[in-house]
Write a protein that binds this DNA or RNA. Structure first.
Length: 569
RNA sequence: UGGGGUGUAGCCAAGCGGUAAGGCAACGGUCUCUGAAAUCGUCAUUCGAUGGUUCGAACCCAUCCACCCCAGCCA
């Protein structure tokens, strides 16, 4: 007995997390494909992968993992006019980065062009396909309406003639578009996909793999079921818009000589609030310069999320949490944010960075003295150890952590008020220094030596603790704050006359040129993720160097104070 | 309009004739040397609507309504 069948005896294995797994369980129980589960992720190499693809990748590869099965990577490259090698590489990189692997099972639909051709010949020989000479325009006219059947004057062409013409098509005897091979199914079907769908078209464009070997290329509806069958796929998981193609998928496999007939199962694609997912619109964002390329940290592409600082684990967790179902839905972006916060909360070092510095002089602290204060790298995780932070007479704090006229419940520094400096001492503000225009340029404070972190003997309790950096050792850095690309939840839903770019968030990127970070970050390497305490999670951009540190904000920390302030307004 | 789908909380989503899981968000409390995290609690008398079957319906039946998809020689 195989492992899967043994699992099926186990009642728990029967509890499916989603309807796809329920269908697989049913097939396993009925021995529909024996004990095997074999899926595939079949992108067309014509663009970069995005978070919606991640859902499909997690479903397909995750399902294979769950059932001890296999998942292939297959490029659906049946339309050479749209596809490029660049995308074949980026797709592999992204799938690997997400944590999945296809071993030696990377395939191309184009691997099967010869086999597909032979299957097409078989269809013609059986009277199930014919060569049609309707032009594209004519075919549209002849298609019929929902209630009236379509027609083609060529559908009764003899088998011999179709065979000869199909051979001639392959040999390049016809101009592009002069004729097509069509399945002979049902011109009266209410499902237009069954009204003698085109199987092959003539298209002279160089294919990235087969070069100029072919001038005829199979259509998706013909190529996909055959590719699945030849690879021994058991469950062909795709998105909802292909549901109406399923009868054709099944028809193809029922009319050619293959012994594998995978089950196609459709699920709803992912939509996320505040962003767009369609290839066309993502391309416009890049090409019209609204973002800086496909991997701009604001893009919902896998490479964009990666550069933003998202982890693969967080994206996988997200895909797990949103579930798999058949209803069109738009997941709230906060779900994704929760996943990355949750991951980084456990792993990221807590460090201090001041984004909008204001100088604080601790007037009673000895001139020239510097002490090294121990700081937990991650209080969630003591085994991550401690580091030493320099502290001396002059430091910088966040400008918003001081207010001359504080609102109620303001726990930070105020004139004559006290706050704790994280990992250091409690200080009191004694004097506010302003320039001639009245701008605050410095705060003069005193510290209480008995309040040192870890050895506080004062018994003092203060409401607020703020972060800071020591003036002499602080390292300048550029910090890039990212926000949603759009100001509306569903930017793809636009009323007529409105372009989706009209809803672009003009403040989706804020660059802070003169932030100061603690000295432990001076040698930060690219791709390092940290928490800037009280700010959020950040990652050093791949372009960051010790000479010029650049931090991308992955996600802010939740901020109930800010929220409170907002609701008061 | 013909066909294929889908409607469960602000957003996802379980549920499969026995009396509405879970997560995100939100809102309160506790704790806190991160206004974070953690933690405790609140959040659908009702499942698109209306009828019907049943002792009993989100689940079965009927009718209606809303939304999505198909009518490319794209995938």
């Amino acid at each position: 007995m195989t492992e899967n069948m043994a699992n099926m005896e186990n009642k728990e294995a029967l509890t499916a997390a989603n309807f796809v797994h329920a269908a697989i369980n049913e097939d396993l129980l009925n021995n529909r494909f024996g004990p095997r589960v074999h899926t595939r992720f079949p992108p067309e190499p014509n663009g970069y992968l995005h978070i919606g693809h991640a859902k499909s990748i997690c479903l397909n590869f995750g399902t294979a993992l769950l059932y001890n099965g296999l998942c292939n990577l297959r490029f659906d490259d049946t339309n050479p006019s749209k596809e490029e090698i660049e995308f074949i590489n980026s797709i592999q990189e992204d799938v690997h980065w997400l944590g999945f692997d296809w071993d030696d099972r990377m395939f191309f639909a184009s691997d099967y062009f010869e086999a597909m051709y032979q299957f097409a010949v078989e269809l013609i020989q059986n009277g199930d396909a014919y060569v049609c000479q309707l032009s594209a325009d004519e075919m549209r006219q002849y298609r019929g309406t929902p209630t009236e059947p379509g027609k083609s004057p060529y559908r009764d062409r003899s088998i011999e003639e179709s065979l000869a013409m199909f051979t001639a098509m392959r040999e390049g005897k016809y101009e592009d578009g002069a004729c097509t091979l069509r399945a002979k199914i049902d011109m009266g079907s209410p499902n237009f996909n069954m009204r003698d769908p085109v199987l092959y078209r003539i298209q002279r464009s160089e294919h990235h793999r087969t070069g100029n070997d072919w001038c005829i290329y199979p259509m998706y509806d013909f190529a996909h079921p055959i590719s699945d069958a030849l690879e021994g796929i058991t469950h062909s998981i795709c998105t909802l818009e292909f549901e109406i193609h399923r009868p054709l998928y099944d028809w193809v496999l029922d009319h050619i000589s293959v012994d594998c007939h995978p089950r196609q199962i459709e699920f709803a694609r992912l939509n996320l609030t505040g962003t767009v997912m369609s290839k066309r619109r993502l391309r416009r964002l890049v090409e019209e310069g609204y973002v800086n390329g496909w991997d701009d940290p604001r893009m919902p592409t896998i490479c964009g999320l990666r550069r933003r600082g998202y982890t693969a684990a967080a994206i996988r967790d997200f895909c797990e949490r949103i579930g798999v179902a058949k209803s069109n839905s738009t997941v709230d972006y906060s779900m994704l944010e929760h996943c990355i916060r949750d991951d980084l909360n456990n792993t990221a070092y807590r460090v201090m960075a001041v984004l909008d510095p204001i100088k604080v002089v601790i007037t009673n602290y000895p001139q020239g003295k510097t002490e090294m204060l121990p700081a937990d790298n991650n209080p969630q995780c003591p085994e991550q150890g401690k580091r030493l932070l320099p502290f001396s007479r002059e430091i910088f704090i966040e400008a918003e952590d001081f207010m001359e006229e504080p609102p109620k419940k303001y726990y930070r520094l105020t004139p004559n008020g006290e706050v704790r400096l994280k990992h250091a001492y409690i200080i009191q503000c004694n004097e506010v220094v302003k320039d001639e225009k009245g701008n605050i340029i410095q705060l003069n404070c005193t510290y209480d030596p008995t309040t040192k972190s870890g050895e506080d003997t004062s018994g003092k309790k203060v409401k607020g603790t703020i972060h800071w950096v020591e003036a002499a050792s602080a390292v300048p850095a550029e910090v890039r704050l990212y926000d949603n690309l759009f100001t509306v939840d569903n930017p793809e839903d636009v009323t007529e006359g409105v372009d989706f770019t009209d809803n672009l968030n003009l403040e989706s990127l804020k660059i802070i040129g003169r932030a100061l970070v603690e000295p432990s970050l001076a040698m930060a390497m690219a791709w390092e993720r940290v928490q800037f305490m009280r700010h959020g999670y950040f990652m050093t951009d791949p372009d960051s160097t010790p000479e010029k540190l650049i931090f991308n904000r992955i996600v802010s920390l939740k901020d109930s104070w800010a929220k409170m302030q907002q609701t008061e307004k």
